[in-house]
Design a protein around this nucleic acid. Structure first.
Lengths: 132, 132
DNA sequence: TTACATGCAAAATGTTTGCAAAATC
DNA sequence: GATTTTGCAAACATTTTGCATGTAA
């Protein structure tokens, strides 16, 4: 994990970080691009991608890879898991966590040096349930 | 889940299914394409993608979405989880499973009708550990 | 002033799709 | 013989990259 201090603090970088932090959900790169464009109309998608990478590498945002082809980004960098609505594509945090020693257990089983895990639930969100 | 019986049994379909079943790891679509090409040199990538979709929909193979951009396919359709080597990209099964009532718990927490979950560990595999 | 960051456009990657011909049932 | 499936190529969506220019430190 590189420190952000190694990087320059540009207007674009700040706007992108703020966009993620102000987002209520788990925005994709192009959603962040649209948000950033409101204050920096000439910002490019490439810059958004490059900065999301930098911010993710330096631990300031979290990159989520849920079902589907797009990456999502998360302002919440603490340990937590996610739930994906298979109906509307919504991604939400879920306040459920694995036991802390699970990674140790899996390390023993697999022989890997386990560095992390990703747990995503799928289901139908309350809104979609009620819509039927 | 559609039954495969609704679909015709073509040579391509069989070759693709066999390729997944005979694979030792968790091949990607293009790896399956290369395998299939050994017996059907004129098979197309589109056919591979279409058939993997059919086989996955009918529950005969499992589609895996691990970190990284590509989908992987798994001959093992029973409940199990995966571990990804962040060093070489290898994906392996891991004989660790969540408690069966976790989904019920998460349903209660989130208000979702939970239909599944996906748990993937990341780490460094024994081969990559020893290579240093 | 110089190394890093940007905008732009093109390329790369992985996957899906339209269509006419071929194969299955 | 009707319908599904195929091969091919083009389209698609997302992400990455090369490069000349701009900018923070």
């Amino acid at each position: 994990m590189k420190e952000l201090a190694e990087h320059r603090i540009t207007r674009q970088r700040q706007v992108i970080l703020n966009a993620v932090r102000e987002s209520t959900g788990h925005p994709t790169a192009s959603e962040i691009y649209e948000m950033a464009r409101k204050s920096l109309p000439r910002i490019s998608l490439g810059t958004v991608y490059r900065n999301l990478q930098v911010l993710s590498d330096s631990g300031m945002v979290r990159t989520l890879k849920v079902e589907g082809s797009k990456k999502h980004f998360d302002r919440n960098i603490s340990r937590h898991n996610h739930i994906l609505c298979t109906c509307c594509g919504r991604v939400e945090d879920v306040g459920y966590d694995l036991n802390a020693d699970v990674e140790k257990t899996v390390g023993g089983i697999s022989g890997y040096k386990v560095t992390g895990h990703c747990l995503t639930f799928t289901g139908v969100c309350p809104r979609c349930k009620n819509r039927k």
